[in-house]
Design a protein around this nucleic acid. Structure first.
Lengths: 229, 229
DNA sequence: TATGGTAGTGAACAATGTTCACGTCAGCAA
DNA sequence: TTGCTGACGTGAACATTGTTCACTACCATA
């Protein structure tokens, strides 16, 4: 197989790029097969030589956005040196929030949707987009544990069932149940807070949720990590 | 206008009922105009004599579900006598969770969606479904304030901008900014927690989020309301 | 040179949301 | 009674969308 890859007119990457442009302009509904084809000056049916259908195209788009978001968060995290988990968490969280605000359509596709297409080739799996996104944050909690800054609520009576699930989930990261609990709490609340801001779910009370969101994110970090020396 | 309402074959209510059956079976995508018509043994075009289109039908469906959910929560709240806000909040919260678990498709339509149709005739407005849903919970916080059980975080430095928005939002309920803050926190976190359970967003860590959710909801109530005598 | 696989075309098809001209029928006024 | 009007429903259309299929141009290689 020494074929020299003579630049095919169409690629999954080009399809995803065109689909994303439509997504940005008009939401998930606007990413229409015929429009994607038109944007690439190609017959609609040509798409099916690279992708099984619209659903798989959306799956690739989801995976692409997850990868971008994960990289953005990881870069922000690594812009601060190891050993300062609180600052690293703040940086990664702010990166997530900034990305969500800058790309509301993509964020809605990733999180606010009932997942029209979950089992995609690249989205799921241990090295898929969602996992890499989670890893960008979990590593911070691992670091906090190593530095003795992870706050593990002792008064939280974890049921045996929850305890075993947390143990299984944290095994890959070397985190026991008590250490995994704040990880789950952190990701769940973080997404809840950012979703509120981006999808405008709290518009009945707050026209501009910026201050509220920052307050909540700061309090969340305080609850999860003990203050530095 | 003394017309005797000679039972028209078609009604918005009947349309909504049929649409909801389809929603339950196959999600929002499955509520298809032609299927709704077929379920009522009627031509598809007949729907347009009662509703401007599919979007308005979905809007009515949203309003109907919101009303049902609001009533369920209010009933659960009132099953416990006035003066015990903590128990009333727990009851209303559990009602929300139970409804969400029993009606995942409806819950997704109401909350997990990017709101395909927000400005509906009955959904918005001061007496619309969403407002009634919020009121079912806000009344509990008002009661807690009156009984001196509302925990208003003093260490929370509210920015002037946030303070004024909270004041405006709470004016209708006689709540000032400091009292309104835990209300917003409560509703936002409550929905975040329940959404996680119903849409399975935390499946990467917890196969059965039941225990986690109950833990989180209890902790949330502890953070919002001071313990009773 | 012949071959075969890759990547694209264009015409079709089914499903869906929507519109429109028409029909029907109850109620009401002259 | 007769005729009118408006509400309600029908059936046939139309545009849009996802998808399939037969066919073709092309290019690397045996």
């Amino acid at each position: 197989m020494t074929t020299t890859e003579v630049s095919p007119r169409l690629t999954v990457d080009r399809l995803v790029a065109a689909a994303r442009r439509l997504l940005v302009q008009g939401g998930t509904e606007a990413v229409v097969v015929r429009e994607v084809a038109r944007a690439l000056s190609v017959a609609p049916s040509a798409m099916y030589k690279h992708v099984s259908g619209r659903d798989e195209l959306l799956s690739h788009l989801v995976a692409s956005c997850f990868a971008e978001l994960a990289e953005r968060c990881a870069q922000a995290r690594d812009s601060i040196p190891y050993g300062r988990p609180r600052a690293r968490l703040a940086a990664a969280t702010e990166a997530l929030r900034n990305w969500a605000i800058a790309h509301p359509a993509e964020f809605a596709l990733l999180f606010a949707n009932p997942r029209p297409v979950s089992p995609s080739p690249a989205d799921a799996g241990p090295d898929g987009g969602y996992a890499r996104f989670g890893a960008a944050f979990i590593t911070i909690f691992v670091e906090a544990r190593d530095v003795g800054r992870l706050r593990t609520n002792p008064q939280e009576d974890l049921t045996p069932r929850l305890r075993s699930q947390l143990r299984d989930a944290g095994e890959h990261w070397g985190l026991d149940a008590a250490n995994m609990f704040p990880v789950v709490v952190g990701l769940q609340r973080m997404l809840g807070i950012v979703s509120v801001e981006v999808t405008g779910q709290l518009g009945w009370a707050l026209h501009d949720p910026t201050d509220y969101v920052q307050t909540q994110l700061a309090e969340l970090a305080d609850n999860l990590l003990t203050p530095g020396p």
